[in-house]
Design a protein around this nucleic acid. Structure first.
Length: 889
RNA sequence: GCGAGCGUGGUGGAAUCGGUAGACACGCCAGACUUAAAAUCUGUUGUCCGUAUGGACGUGGGGGUUCAAGUCCCCCCGCUCGCACCA
């Protein structure tokens, strides 16, 4: 096909005043007046045109083609907040570069988009401004889709779905039932944040400083019966399989490893002097048992709960200890509180009596909910002992320092050798790790303890006491107990007639929805009113994209062709939970017959991109009446005489650099206005340039201008070359050809290695080279057409236009990716720097293949070296071939 | 508190493996074009000393390993992400 290009003469193109106004508002210094060439780059003309051309040619529809190699590129799908932000633009542009590049390389590409559409914001909006979460969500989706489309992303929109579509969550319910049949789901009690005033369960983010965000009441920890996935049964598998994820960032694998937290320790019991049930403890530092000064139990430990009944003082303590949020952070940072139960435990070796304390920092969820404290070698235990005046006993010292511990615990690395004090297992000088192993052996052979491997990873609690989520397809029957809904009755749809005027879960107070017939015996029964954690929704959407309309969760033939995701791209904030849950889900889906074996690790390669940041403008002269800071939008401030001030009032502004774009700080830049002012290609080019993709990028108006100016230069260059006499000859054709191949090589390597910023730097350089080249028309035309191809993943609209303008065949997206001729890349002579004592002092030009001995001779003959040597022989001469020479004097 | 990461000119940032620190871009300054400005084009630009040839310093701070450190090791400071019910 052939599409006419969008070059137009200036006189025929009066610019829309509105567009001009927007540009000026964004960048007052950058005015777009005055023609400089016969034509002008007008993104608002060319971008819709090429998007239409791609649609007509159906180029982004993913099709199973057994003759082609497939490539599945996926960016983490967005939550439909209603507005796209620059972070989305950056994320989806990166994925688009990969997708378009792979298309040009001849792959059958799957690049889908959907919506992570369940969750609390929809309910919060319903409570705050009325309306229904469903309407709010679907309206937001429509808005965001409309904002995304102008970006020109190579997305197969025919596969789009939202997780709140009954067609999606119905399949999720079917899988829940399948998982139940495979014994991957169960119920148990778990602790939630309870707001005693609103009488409702709070999410962690709804707890601010230990208080409910609406009521302001002190939050309590309360137990509820909840549904769990047995992810902990996969602990070892999820841990060991990390080794195979070679194309994941090492930091993500390390974070997951630490999260799973495999540890080997000793489990043993403290007998009680009062003859009560022994206290089972687990410790990863059994070697420090001699330093035990008390036994600690969780406030939720069975012994603690038993004592509560007839000890009002202790019960009051436990109530106090259970206040505050449920997050590990809240528990760890809360002031350390203890209560002496009066119970004494017998030290298994010395027989000494140790007091049993309840301590608010001991988690019932980890280990056995009971510990022994060794204050000399654990800062938290030490702080506790100093506070309650408990003894501190050193069990080992540094080899060169035997000062007893005062107020700083001595915690050397486990690999460091220390000197032991009178150790029961006969240790003298040994590392902590050797001591741990020796102690476990000692305890096992003496018969008072067992070496145990434990994992920090807990089972995944998926129950949420909220409306806007996937209903758990379960019915509670007085006779049959917990019964899964029949599959033919799926989806269990959310009822539409609900209200949010009262706190709590509307499903709970919806009798006609809640009351139902038992799927097993048919008697009246009640539905489960909890819905699923939204992490469930996002744990398998990547699999659903392979067959989004299938009437089963997946279609095996499609899953087999498209899985795995070859490149997954998203934020580092998902490094642990989302990715770990997805890895578990893929395994569970395989067990339940919904994914092939090869898909148990669903993401072959992972890339975590950085945030888009912007300066924050805080009013330096004024605060709100509640003494809160006032933040100004970027468009509200300007620089006057080197000072940043508010445009309207002239008030001084305090500028904080590089903060995450956040609505509460007003430092947001709206992609829609950027696209309207500069065009999608400029926005795309900017978010890819400068910063390496894994790092944060600072949005600046100047940067966006610079991108826009460069695209204008490329356009003008195209125009200039198109206007050349096709038969014109010149100088330097070979040199331009060589540079073209270097550009092909560098840009290809840049894209392949996620060095988009490096690829763009190369494209800048290549553009400058073409601009200065005096080569003939044919060579220049070839150079600019190659430039268009190399730019097309980043700035696809401009690339198509240049391609068409130069008479390229068909669409540039369908043109095969150029291949660099290796022979054009090698240099004959290289420049080697010469260092004298490690400092660069001179350089030599030598043939690339010169031997080390020859290089040494040339280097020693160098004037600067001769001068420095002053007739003496060098102490040492280091030649790194092709790199550097260092003369040591 | 615990786990992970990051820190380089006036600014964004570059620097496969430990081998020329500052690629590319912004900004600034100078010049060309213009009645003028903008736009565009050309050139300079890490800091300090020096007319210059040149030299000293320089990758958050301090110490170390090495012929050679932005890169590796130790300590410290600052910022960011995660901590299981935010998505």
């Amino acid at each position: 096909m052939r599409v006419s290009c969008a070059f137009k003469t200036v006189s025929s193109r009066p610019r829309a005043p509105e567009l001009l106004r927007q540009r000026r508002a964004l960048c007052p210094a950058f005015l777009y007046e005055g023609p400089t060439t016969m034509s002008r780059y007008t993104a608002s003309d060319i971008e819709p045109k090429w998007q239409e051309a791609w649609d007509k040619a159906n180029v982004f529809t993913a099709e199973r083609d057994e003759n082609k190699e497939k490539y599945y590129v996926l960016e983490m799908f967005p939550y439909p907040s209603g507005r796209i932000h620059m972070g989305h633009v950056r994320n989806y542009t990166m994925g688009d570069v990969i997708a378009r590049y792979k298309m040009s390389c001849g792959f059958s590409v799957l690049h889908p988009m959907g919506w992570d559409a369940f969750g609390m914001p929809a309910e919060n909006a319903a409570m705050a401004v009325g309306g229904h979460p469903k309407d709010w969500t679907y309206n937001n989706i429509a808005d965001m889709r409309a904002q995304m489309k102008p970006l020109g992303l190579s997305i197969d929109w025919s596969r789009e779905f939202a997780t709140c579509d009954p067609e999606y969550y119905g399949q999720q319910q079917a899988m829940f039932i399948d998982f139940m049949a495979k014994d991957l789901v169960y119920r148990k009690n778990a602790i939630v944040n309870w707001d005693p005033v609103d009488m409702t369960v709070l999410a962690n983010e709804q707890v601010e400083g230990g208080r409910g965000w609406r009521s302001g009441a002190l939050v309590e920890r309360r137990e509820l019966t909840q549904w769990f996935f047995k992810i902990s049964e996969f602990s070892d598998e999820l841990l060991s399989a990390l080794d195979g994820l070679e194309n994941w960032p090492a930091k993500v694998r390390l974070m997951q490893e630490n999260w799973i937290g495999k540890s080997r320790g000793l489990q043993f019991s403290f007998e009680r002097t009062d003859g009560g049930d022994p206290i089972e403890v687990y410790t990863t530092r059994p070697d420090t048992l001699n330093g035990a000064s008390f036994v600690g139990i969780s406030p939720d430990h069975p012994i603690s709960k038993k004592l509560e009944a007839d000890n009002p003082e202790l019960a009051a303590f436990n109530i106090e200890a259970r206040k505050g949020g449920t997050t590990e952070e809240a528990i760890e940072t809360a002031p350390k509180l203890g209560f002496d139960t009066g119970i004494k435990a017998k030290h298994p070796l010395t027989g000494a009596e140790l007091p049993v304390w309840i301590a608010n920092f001991i988690l019932m969820d980890y280990g056995t909910g009971a510990i022994f404290a060794c204050p000399a070698h654990d800062q938290r235990d030490l702080d506790f002992c100093r506070k309650y005046d408990l003894p501190v006993i050193d069990t080992f010292f540094a080899l060169d320092n035997e000062t007893p511990v005062a107020n700083e615990a001595f915690v050397p690395a486990k690999s460091e050798k220390v000197k032991w004090v009178d150790h029961f297992a006969g240790l003298d000088v040994a590392t902590g790790q050797d001591a741990i192993d020796a102690t476990i052996d000692f305890a096992e052979s003496a018969g008072w303890g067992t070496g145990v491997t434990k994992y920090r990873l807990r089972d995944w609690g998926l129950s949420r006491q909220r409306y806007w989520g996937c209903p758990i397809p379960i019915v509670h029957c007085d006779d049959c107990g917990v019964v899964p809904e029949k599959k033919e009755n799926l989806p269990v749809r959310l009822p539409d007639d609900v209200s949010f005027d009262k706190p709590g879960n509307p499903l709970d107070r919806h009798p006609t929805w809640r009351d139902c017939a038992c799927p097993s015996c048919g008697k009246p029964a009640k539905r489960e009113t909890d819905t699923m954690d939204t992490f469930v929704d996002s744990s398998w959407y990547f699999a659903r994209f392979t067959a989004p309309r299938a009437d089963t969760p997946t279609n095996m033939a499609d899953a087999d062709y498209w899985m795995n995701v070859d490149q997954y791209i998203g934020g580092i904030e998902h490094a642990i939970l989302h990715l770990l849950y997805s890895r578990f889900f893929a395994r569970a889906m395989h067990i339940a017959g919904h994914l092939p074996q090869k898909a148990v690790e669903p993401f072959n390669a992972l890339f975590t991109q950085g945030m888009v940041t912007h300066e924050i403008y805080e009013n330096a002269e004024r605060r709100t009446e509640h003494d809160r800071p006032i933040y100004h939008y970027p468009a509200e401030v300007e620089t006057r005489d080197g000072k940043v001030v508010v445009k309207k009032t002239g008030e001084l502004v305090k500028v904080t650099p590089s903060a995450k774009m956040s609505k509460s700080k007003n430092n947001v830049v709206d992609p829609v206005s950027i696209i309207q002012a500069f065009g999608a290609d400029t926005a795309r080019w900017f978010v890819l340039s400068d910063s390496p993709p894994e790092r944060d990028v600072e949005w600046t108006a100047a940067g966006a201008e610079a991108s826009s100016k460069h695209l204008n230069r490329v356009w003008n260059l195209c125009d200039k070359i198109a206007a050349m006499d096709p038969n014109a000859t010149g100088q330097g054709d070979d040199e331009l050809m060589r540079e073209t191949h270097k550009a092909i090589h560098d840009v290809t390597v840049g894209i392949e290695s996620f060095g988009f910023n490096a690829a763009i730097a190369k494209l800048y350089g290549f553009t400058n080279i073409i601009n200065k080249s005096k080569a003939g028309a044919a060579a220049q035309k070839q150079a600019i057409m190659t430039l268009a191809q190399l730019m097309s993943p980043m700035t696809p609209h401009l690339a198509e236009d240049i391609w068409a303008h130069q008479g390229g065949e068909g669409l540039v997206i369908n043109a095969p990716w150029p291949v660099a001729d290796e022979s054009m890349l090698v240099e004959d002579t290289i420049t080697m720097p010469i260092q004298i004592n490690g400092k660069r002092r001179s350089e030599i030009a030598v043939p690339a293949d010169m031997s080390k001995e020859e290089v040494e001779k040339v280097a020693l003959a160098n004037e600067a070296v001769q001068k420095a040597l002053d007739g003496n022989a060098p102490k040492k001469l280091i030649v790194v071939p092709g790199r550097i020479v260092n003369v040591v004097i």
